[in-house]
Design a protein around this nucleic acid. Structure first.
Lengths: 184, 184
DNA sequence: TAGTCCATGTAAGATGTTACATGATTCA
DNA sequence: TGAATCATGTAACATCTTACATGGACTA
């Protein structure tokens, strides 16, 4: 997973959600299966063991929700250590490797920033991402230029689609920075 | 992995490359570590066992390359069964689930189409992807519209970045279809 | 000759997938 | 009362990560 800590992306997604408000395992499964744009598994065989690991590490705490009506369920809350661990992850510097291989993780880190670390840091994150993309994208164009003539049409188009995706992300960072600066 | 067959995306990437020309395990590692836009692991602990599994299933065949100079290495070639398996995977219908969770796989399937199944089928694939995206993207906008006001700025922007990525891909399919139709 | 690249592999451990299992509650 | 949904879990299995290991060939 190359997360620098031993925590999985799934585990950070769970921790991020639980840091906002209490969730049960079932809630989290529903969230992953119903919300678009989440690439996480909603299978019980992934969620429940991951929650148990987070609890064992003291990052979340489960308590039984004795709702009168419905069947009893375990609601998980983040501990101070859990919130601190999540913030630590969010605040890691953005590396080239993040941009090349872990864009999803970067977006997850960003998605919860307003609530957990505040807008100033969210803005700083966007600027760092903008800068890293600005240095990465030209290398993609260089690669395309060097290999273009040797590639079949489908291969070349597939590569171009990846480049367009990064360029779309680059434009997004500019718009997002503007959105933060307008609201400051 | 949800690949409908038991083959991993990494295994299909290996099989696709080997279907074009012989590669050694080391070649494949170098390919994954040097080429931009590949999300695959270049670690020997992933590559070599995956190659052995493909060989055991009769999809590739390794022979020792007795180059005079360099140390001997195993060059892998695709068997007819291996090529057929790869084509079968490429020809699977595009599902909503593919578009939501496995865009990378779709691009991998497409990248090798010219060489393995031909341009007509590549074009058909692009049209199917175009159609699926056209039906999926509005649901993302609906979700955004319904939840926009309840989301913090960072969360909303993260969601919008995902939507922009799909819209970028959608524009790409149009351009790619045009590129095929120009060359037909 | 020392370091780097070529080249292939294994071992331990963690995680995720698929499938199965259980029982309560709600609703038709 | 039967089906669907709520809710949590386990077991077997495959795969991937990280780290270690080996040895030949090239080059400064």
């Amino acid at each position: 997973m190359v997360n620098r800590s031993s925590t999985t992306t799934l585990a950070f997604a769970l921790l991020g959600l639980i840091s906002q408000k209490p969730y049960s395992g079932y809630d989290l499964r529903k969230f992953f299966s119903s919300t678009p744009m989440t690439s996480f598994s909603d299978s019980p065989g992934a969620i429940y063991p991951a929650l148990r690991r987070l609890e064992r590490r003291g990052l979340i705490r489960g308590r039984v929700d004795a709702g009168k009506d419905r069947r009893k369920r375990r609601l998980f809350e983040a501990t101070p250590r859990g919130r601190a661990e999540f913030r630590r992850w969010q605040l890691q510097p953005i590396t080239r490797d993040d941009v090349v291989h872990h864009v999803d993780s970067l977006m997850l880190r960003f998605a919860f920033m307003d609530e957990s670390v505040g807008r100033a840091i969210a803005l700083r994150f966007l600027k760092a991402l903008h800068k890293e993309l600005a240095s990465y994208i030209p290398t993609l164009h260089q690669y395309l230029k060097a290999n273009r003539s040797a590639m079949p049409l489908s291969g070349r188009l597939a590569l171009e689609s990846g480049i367009l995706g990064y360029e779309s992300l680059f434009r997004w960072t500019k718009a997002a920075i503007a959105a933060y600066q307008k609201e400051n």
